[in-house]
């Protein structure tokens, strides 16, 4: 959490992750070059470079898309989620090298504008089999550029988390375009069983993970709780919550985090204002609820970030009866002071 913007927010863990990303990318490229020249020595260097960076970008895109649902299915993957942005920018760089060299190699050496040539060199837009696959790759690259160039916290803050998140969900469209780009390109240029198998397995894995995670969350959202005479919802026994930790509870489809700390209980909306991180998976540090994603902090009794920060989340009223916690489902306005419940 900081008041100013830094070009890259590095800490010890992020540096380790970034080293793994760089070394992993280099290892893949070296392996690809060596195997390509051994298996198919007739290939030109330009072709090998285009294929190496293209396949690297696709592999990284699959890893990036798997991180989200894996984290929702198993919290052990959460540390990778925190570093996903650097992986995304690295993936864009690989895709950009692939696209840039391809455009130069196939379209920039003639008299036609290379971008115009991408759209007009193959005009079989009416055919699915012979559809101009380069156009699909170019559109995917534009989306990835848009995402990489707005990945910084500056844009997150100024575009608002809602617009930023919506913008970055375009990655799913980019993925669909990339799958079609590779699939059609492979069939039109060189039918490789390895490429096809990887692509189909990748698609089944990624879409399967996302759907399994989505239906698991949908099940959680649909859980019904006992309601008492005054309309308050039964949450759990107070002993079920660990000290300085929270229980996440669903109220009308929204997640609420009920924290236990210093002999008190407080409830706030579960979603961090910074980037939508799950506050209920964080803990109370120095009296503040601390988001596990980027360390944004909130005071438990009013849902406000400590000065000079201005973030605020919705707060909720709690009641204790025979050791059972009840919550008033009608949340207060963001940042409203609610007296903590002593237990």
């Amino acid at each position: 959490m900081g008041l100013d913007y830094k070009l890259v927010l590095w800490n010890k863990h992020k540096k380790t992750y970034d080293k793994i990303i760089v070394l992993g990318m280099l290892a893949y490229l070296v392996l690809f070059f060596v195997l390509s020249f051994l298996i198919n020595p007739e290939l030109t260097a330009e072709t090998v470079i285009i294929r190496a960076f293209g396949s690297l970008a696709i592999l990284m895109l699959h890893i990036i898309l798997a991180i989200g649902p894996l984290s929702r299915l198993n919290p052990q993957f959460l540390p990778i989620l925190y570093n996903r942005r650097h992986l995304g920018v690295s993936m864009f760089l690989a895709a950009f090298i692939h696209g840039g060299i391809s455009i130069f190699q196939f379209h920039a050496l003639g008299s036609t504008n290379p971008i115009y040539a991408i759209f007009t060199s193959n005009m079989e837009y009416g055919s699915l089999t012979n559809f101009p696959f380069q156009v699909l790759g170019f559109l995917a690259l534009l989306i990835l550029f848009l995402m990489a160039s707005t990945s910084h916290d500056f844009f997150l803050k100024n575009l608002s988390p809602r617009i930023w998140k919506g913008l970055h969900m375009l990655v799913y469209l980019a993925y669909a375009l990339v799958v079609m780009h590779v699939f059609l390109g492979a069939f039109q240029q060189e039918t490789s069983p390895f490429t096809m198998t990887f692509l189909i397995l990748g698609f089944v894995t990624i879409s399967g993970l996302h759907l399994v995670a989505a239906f698991k969350e949908s099940k959680v959202d649909g859980l019904k709780s006992s309601v008492d005479d005054s309309g308050w919802l039964e949450v759990c026994n107070v002993n079920e919550i660990a000290n300085n930790r929270a229980k996440i509870f669903t109220v009308a489809g929204e997640r609420v985090a009920i924290f236990k700390y210093d002999g008190k209980l407080s409830a706030i909306h579960n979603v961090c204002k910074h980037q939508g991180g799950p506050l209920g998976e964080g803990k109370v540090v120095d009296g503040c609820i601390t988001c596990p994603w980027h360390g944004y902090q909130y005071l438990p009794h009013n849902g406000q970030s400590p000065p000079p920060f201005t973030e605020k989340v919705i707060t909720y009223e709690l009641r204790l009866s025979n050791g059972i916690i009840y919550i008033n489902p009608n949340g207060f306005s963001e940042g409203t002071e609610v007296k903590p419940l002593n237990y």
């Binding site: 809602r162 979603v271 963001e334």
Partner: peptide
């Protein structure tokens, strides 16, 4: 707030 609604909406 609409921004909060979006979280469930995003899911």
């Amino acid at each position: 707030d609409k921004e909060q609604i979006m979280i469930a909406g995003q899911r």
